[in-house]
């Protein structure tokens, strides 16, 4: 069995906001007609949360579901459970027109923690961070690459990006959070 490691193996940077790579995270992409009751039921059975409404993320401990587009969900679970959950979900959906893909190892997850977390994201993404509410996921870009983020706690933001650009995103965040870069915008 190969030794599964996350993109940056838990690297962190201490600035006025702390940037931390979160290690392995199980993630599935589910595509299909989100308004179907069968889909909602399968999602509930797989990750134990209700079907999220537009732009919302429903989290329950280590599992959850996030609305990515009108026909796409991101399902979150511990890394070790991803393969089994994907199989279970595929089976539950049967012939329903849908797709389940295990994208755990195609992604990287970071958290920003500290008072200026919103500000660090605002430096990099064209998003009104003041308006971002708890329980909402926002897909956007960070500098030149796509990223999605949500408020995961008080003064804490979780960011998901593609693994292939993990170093780029980490460098961006570390630079934006470097001491002396405080704007005190929020």
């Amino acid at each position: 069995m190969s030794n599964v490691v996350s993109a940056l193996q838990g690297v962190s940077a201490d600035g006025y906001v702390e940037v931390q790579e979160m290690g392995l995270q199980g993630m599935l992409t589910l595509r299909g007609d989100l308004s179907m009751a069968k889909l909602a039921k399968a999602v509930k059975a797989a990750v134990g949360v209700e079907m999220p409404k537009q732009r919302k993320i429903n989290l329950n401990g280590q599992t959850g579901a996030a609305w990515m587009s009108p026909d796409e969900l991101l399902l979150i679970m511990p890394h070790a459970q991803a393969t089994a959950t994907a199989a279970k979900l595929t089976k539950a959906l049967g012939k329903t027109h849908s797709l389940v893909a295990n994208v755990s190892d195609a992604r990287v997850v970071f958290t920003l923690s500290g008072k200026g977390a919103r500000e660090v994201v605002a430096k990099l993404a064209p998003v009104d961070m003041q308006a971002l509410k708890k329980g909402e996921i926002r897909r956007s870009r960070m500098a030149q690459v796509p990223a999605a983020f949500w408020l995961s706690g008080k003064d804490e933001i979780t960011i998901v990006a593609f693994r292939s650009v993990a170093t780029y995103v980490f460098d961006l965040l570390a630079n934006a959070a470097a001491p002396g870069g405080e704007v005190d915008a929020y």
Binding site: Q54, S69, P126, R138, R139
Partner: peptide
């Protein structure tokens, strides 16, 4: 009109 985001041009 699909996700309701007020998206800025570069997005």
């Amino acid at each position: 009109p699909y996700c309701g985001v007020k998206a800025e041009e570069t997005e």
